[in-house]
């Protein structure tokens, strides 16, 4: 159903029809798969790189200028590229790693390449918010660097880290939709092929609704967990 032939309300109503959702539902699960797997990678590598950034910084527990500078520069390189360009740049890398440059798994590689640097920076800024006094207190007690990192820095900033991860997942979701137009499949593929190329705006509306609902749900879960922790600690 195209907006050029039917009214907005007719198209919107039809976007809830069974016919439309028959096509959208499989795409949702595809998108969920890409978002889920990418998010796990983003979580693991983003935390890792974020922690390295903080630890090796000049005021960090294990200052190391070389590592800090190189890592920071690499992250900035990725961060300075628009997501579309990262997707295009990562296509040959995906081909090398998973054998083809299209499909869900290829998409995951560009998602990770684009969102890990972003999340690493978010992790860094969360950890930098931590009151230096707490780190000093742990140091004064004779706690080692890694122990301070994992028993003080990460737990103390957990609510903020969770918020950062929520933001990262939301960006992963929007990027998955974008990658859909480059042959990754999923919601984005539907939006582009049917909504853009074939003027099936009912399908386009359905994908918009799905994206909004998913993002709202992710945000709600992240905010709630973060708030629960703060409440438990009586910090709000």
């Amino acid at each position: 159903m195209s907006l050029y032939k039917y009214s907005f309300w007719e198209v919107l109503r039809h976007s809830f029809s069974a016919e439309v959702w028959e096509q959208v539902v499989p795409a949702i699960s595809e998108t969920m798969y890409m978002v889920g797997v990418s998010s796990v990678f983003v979580l693991v590598f983003g935390i890792l790189l974020g922690l390295i950034l903080v630890m090796t910084s000049k005021e960090g527990l294990m200052p190391c200028k070389i590592i800090h500078t190189i890592l920071g520069a690499v992250i900035n390189c990725f961060r300075s590229l628009p997501q579309v360009i990262i997707i295009i740049v990562m296509l040959p890398v995906a081909r090398a790693l998973v054998g083809k440059s299209y499909g869900s798994n290829a998409c995951i590689i560009s998602l990770v390449a684009s969102c890990v640097p972003l999340f690493a920076r978010l992790v860094e800024s969360s950890l930098l918010e931590l009151d230096k006094g707490k780190i000093e207190a742990a140091k004064a007690m004779g706690s080692g660097n890694f122990r301070i990192l994992f028993t003080i820095m990460v737990p103390e900033t957990l609510p903020s880290l969770i918020r950062a991860f929520t933001n990262a997942v939301v960006i992963v979701i929007s990027m998955t939709a974008l990658a859909g137009s480059f042959g990754a499949g999923g919601i984005g593929y539907i939006a582009v092929t049917y909504g853009y190329t074939r003027f099936q705006h009912d399908l386009l509306f359905a994908t918009i609704i799905v994206l909004i609902v998913i993002v709202q749900a992710v945000q709600l879960v992240g905010d709630t967990i973060s708030k629960l922790i703060l409440k438990k600690r009586h910090l709000i």
């Binding site: 009151d131 004064a140 004779g142």
Partner: peptide
Amino acid sequence: NEQRRKIGMIFQQFNLFDSMTVAQNIAY
């Protein structure tokens, strides 16, 4: 680090760990 465990320190801003209970702070 070994020696620091024999030197207690207290601060103007207390610097307690908010993620731990009172007992866990003392047990740290």
